[in-house]
C-alpha cells in the first residue's frame, strides 16, 4: 500500500513530523511526503493511504500553507468515497479555546466529503515538549495495527 504523507505547517514542526514518519516507514512501504501547499485536491484518491499532518494557526485556523487545499476541498466538494485517510494534529494546549482546531476542521471536511478516517485522531501538544516526530511515529504504528485488525478480524 502506498502511503502519501501530506503536511500543512506554519512553523515547520508539521514538516518535521512528516519527515520523521516517512523515514520510519521507508523500509517496507512506498512512502511520499508532500507539502499541502503543493498538492491539488485531484491527487486525493483511493490509490493510497493519505496521512494528513496539520497544525493550527491564529484563531483556530489552518496554517496558511494548507489553506488553498482546504478552500479547494470546500469549494469543489469532490466525492471522496473510498478514500482512506489518517490525521495527526499539532497544537499548543496553551491556546485552550482553539487547541488542534486546524486539523479538526480538515478532518471534518474530508469525512463530510465521504473519505473514511482510519485509526485514532492523532494529537501533539507543543506545551508538553514531547518530540513531535516520535509522537507521530508512535501514533501511526497504532493506526497501522488498527487497520490490520480491521482487515483481519480475530
Amino acid at each position: 500500500m502506498k502511503i502519501s504523507i501530506l503536511f500543512g505547517t506554519e512553523s515547520g514542526n508539521g514538516e518535521l513530523a512528516a519527515e520523521d514518519l516517512a523515514l520510519s516507514l521507508a523500509d517496507g512501504h512506498d512512502v511520499e511526503v508532500r507539502d499541502l501547499a503543493e498538492v491539488t485536491v485531484e491527487k486525493i484518491s483511493d490509490e493510497a493511504l493519505f496521512v494528513f499532518i496539520c497544525s493550527t494557526y491564529g484563531e483556530g485556523e489552518l496554517p496558511n500553507t494548507a489553506l488553498p487545499f482546504y478552500t479547494a476541498l470546500s469549494e469543489t466538494r469532490p466525492d471522496l468515497t473510498g478514500v482512506k485517510f489518517a490525521i495527526f494534529g499539532l497544537g499548543d494546549s496553551f491556546y485552550t479555546e482553539t487547541f488542534g482546531h486546524g486539523s479538526l476542521k480538515l478532518g471534518a471536511e474530508l469525512e463530510e466529503l465521504g473519505a473514511h478516517r482510519v485509526g485514532e485522531f492523532g494529537r501533539h501538544d507543543a506545551s508538553t515538549w514531547e518530540p513531535v516526530g516520535e509522537a507521530a511515529v508512535t501514533w501511526f504504528a497504532e493506526v497501522l495495527s488498527s487497520m490490520r485488525l480491521a482487515s483481519h478480524p480475530g
Binding site: S11, G12, N13, L16, D92, S93, F94, D125, A126, S127, W129, P131, V132
Partner: peptide, 14 residues
C-alpha cells in the same frame, strides 16, 4: 512561562 512557544527550539536543534 510560554514554554510551548519555546519548544520550537527542538526543531532548530536538528
Amino acid at each position: 512561562d510560554h514554554q510551548g512557544t519555546k519548544s520550537i527550539q527542538a526543531q532548530f536543534a536538528r
